[in-house]
Design a protein around this nucleic acid. Sequence first.
DNA 1: TGTACATCAGTGAACGCGCGTTCACTGATGTAC
DNA 2: TGTACATCAGTGAACGCGCGTTCACTGATGTAC
Lengths: 226, 226
Amino acid sequence: MSAAALRARVRAELTDEIKAVARRHLAIDGANLSLRAVARDLGMASSAVYRYFASRDELLTALIIDAYDALGASAESAEAPVDRADRLARWLAVCHAVRDWALAHPHEYTLIYGSPVPGYRAPRDTVPPATRVALLIGGILRDGPVTAPVSDQITGPLAAELATVGAVIAPGAPPHLLAHGIAAWIHLLGAVSFELIGQLDNVIDERRAFFEHQMRAAATLAGFAA
Amino acid sequence: MSAAALRARVRAELTDEIKAVARRHLAIDGANLSLRAVARDLGMASSAVYRYFASRDELLTALIIDAYDALGASAESAEAPVDRADRLARWLAVCHAVRDWALAHPHEYTLIYGSPVPGYRAPRDTVPPATRVALLIGGILRDGPVTAPVSDQITGPLAAELATVGAVIAPGAPPHLLAHGIAAWIHLLGAVSFELIGQLDNVIDERRAFFEHQMRAAATLAGFAA
DNA sequence: TGTACATCAGTGAACGCGCGTTCACTGATGTAC
DNA sequence: TGTACATCAGTGAACGCGCGTTCACTGATGTAC
């Protein structure tokens, strides 16, 4: 290994270490992460961090991208081995992967799906990693029958809009199934956030079973069970 | 009016004014509200605020209770005039009231249903106001048929737990309907949070129609449409 | 192989800021006699 | 009606803290000749 490459690797390793410590600090400060506290934990001067991240916001952005990628990777590798034809199983694999990851990394989940950080504006780099899980669900939708029961027709401007969105995500899917697909996605994130925030405390203890029951119901509406 | 009563009224008015200014500041600082900034806006010394609230956390608690109460009152007065027999309409009235209030008071909504504030622990006083909307939904559930289609039976520990919860909220309701009722409540909050956080940006513009479609679907599962 | 120079990670002091909370105080108003 | 006292809202200075960011610097390491 050349000297330059070695230096680059050391640099990359310390960058990772800073992010790792910062991730731990999310648990304490939430999104108003303190650069100085991170530097202190690493035993280095606070100014040294600026060799690695141009500002606090840039560090925050790196954490956000990593979180989206970790969540996306986790969902992808849970969904990939499932029989392509079993769309319900694929959907449930995604659901549990998202929930498990969120429970294992609550503060990172909050960073990406919690309340917006006051004063922080996410740059465009965060968009592609943010769409990974949604794309998985789009795939499940797309692999279904093109024609589906029209139990609840959607008409008017919403139908037109869904057609436009659908052309990208799941071409051929009828609007009401697409709507239920997006609704399922929203319900999934809502259920995970609800549990994480603690709203289920003193109400439901059988959380995994209750979660799965909800997600099965959402799947029925979206036609994943067919 | 006696002098003492007058003094009490002036005190109550200034207390309200402090809360009003603090509410405006939620938009800037989120939950890490600055007491000093609030005092500055009121043109008073920061120490003077301590005549009204013992600490920053106590002010925050007051804001939280007010927010729960305002949301609850708004949902209640939207649901009350609806024909008792039309459970779907009652449910949709609650849904739109919650959404409308959240869109009108996004930062207060975030305060109560957003990510937990790091370092803040809600006292018990916040619990009763927090349950007002849930109780409305419980009422809708309770007013339904005791026997209902058993499309998806729930068994095991979750069923037992739902029976316990159901005894309080909606006695007689079968476990799977109760589960769908809670799921509907979760979907409602999830959908509102999702829209508020901005996840719908560049995806769905017809938000009210899309929201209502979701809530109708949730109602079907919970048996509100029957 | 040896020397002069460039690179660059990391230091430590400093700037200017804001924060929550406490404390001794002023001064107006209301109460008791 | 007039005076002495109590109440209490509000002041302003201070304590002790933490923050993000900048800047001139040291010192080790790698490169070019």
